[in-house]
């Protein structure tokens, strides 16, 4: 799990020089954040990493494929410097590692048929919703089920495509899923699918909430060892720069529709 396999010599003393290669771990594949194309890694995280470490810091980046379930212990063992792997910032994880400022926000959204009469969260009561197994969308659906005192059926599919098919085929009234993934489907099938609109948790927590209904918010951060504060703060500055100079938006629109 996670390594001890590759050279760690340059990064174990915690005081790297600017010239050193930055080793970044990622759980490939998790499109569109990280995936392989023609044998080369690519994706939102990869492009962000390249912008941060290569363009802004002028260093080499090595983008490593590591199994997601052991990726944190590998970081703690010093096998790589950071993790960029669509990792949600959670209190649990913060006990062991530190995160950069959020560099990506994912919302749990509700997608329904274009002609559906569902216009709010309450409209889902007593209905069947489709989710992809093991995703935060599935967790959001479970929370909603609890909120409705069990008056919600959650159908769990192996892929997001199957979950959307279930809605197109009248097997469920809505898909609860990440806004980015759902936006792809909604844009591709804009005659048939739409987001449920309205305020949600995003409106309570943000100044510029999206127009669609949000059931929960997740923020992704770059993960660092606890003792790597200086490096982390440097990267927070760079993240702010990337947002200001438009690089962030360029990368975002390369991979996401909505």
């Amino acid at each position: 799990m996670g390594g001890g396999d590759d050279g760690t010599e340059s990064e174990t003393d915690g005081t790297p020089t600017e010239a050193e290669t930055v080793r970044v771990a990622s759980g490939i594949p998790y499109p569109p954040f990280e995936m392989m194309e023609n044998g080369e890694p690519t994706g939102f995280d990869y492009d962000m990493g390249a912008a941060i470490f290569e363009e802004q810091m002028g260093r080499e980046m090595e983008f490593l494929d590591r199994s997601f379930d052991g990726i944190i212990s590998g970081l703690q063992n010093g096998n790589y410097r950071v993790i960029m792997s669509a990792m949600t910032i959670t209190e649990d994880r913060k006990e062991n590692i530190d995160f950069s400022d959020p560099y990506f926000t994912a919302y749990q959204t509700v997608a329904v048929l274009e002609n559906s009469d569902i216009s709010s969260k309450a409209g889902l009561r007593g209905k069947t919703v489709a989710v992809q197994k093991g995703t935060t969308g599935a967790e959001a659906a479970d929370d909603l089920q609890t909120e409705f005192d069990g008056d919600l059926t959650v159908s769990r599919y192996d892929s997001s495509a199957s979950a959307f098919n279930a809605v197109l085929n009248n097997q469920a009234v809505a898909v609860i899923n990440d806004n980015t993934v759902s936006a792809e489907y909604v844009n591709q099938n804009d005659e048939e699918l739409r987001f449920v609109m309205g305020d949600g948790v995003a409106a309570e927590q943000r100044d510029d909430p999206p127009e669609y209904l949000t059931l929960s918010i997740e923020e992704y951060g770059i993960a660092f060892r606890k003792d790597d504060d200086e490096f982390r703060e440097r990267i927070n500055e760079i993240l702010a720069t990337l947002r200001e100079n438009g690089t962030y938006d360029d990368i975002y629109s390369t991979y996401f529709a909505g």
Partner: peptide, 19 residues
Amino acid sequence: YYGVPAFFEPGTFPLTNFT
């Protein structure tokens, strides 16, 4: 499960609990 409803226009498949 996936093939038969594909014969219908989206949203028109009549069996709502096809599983």
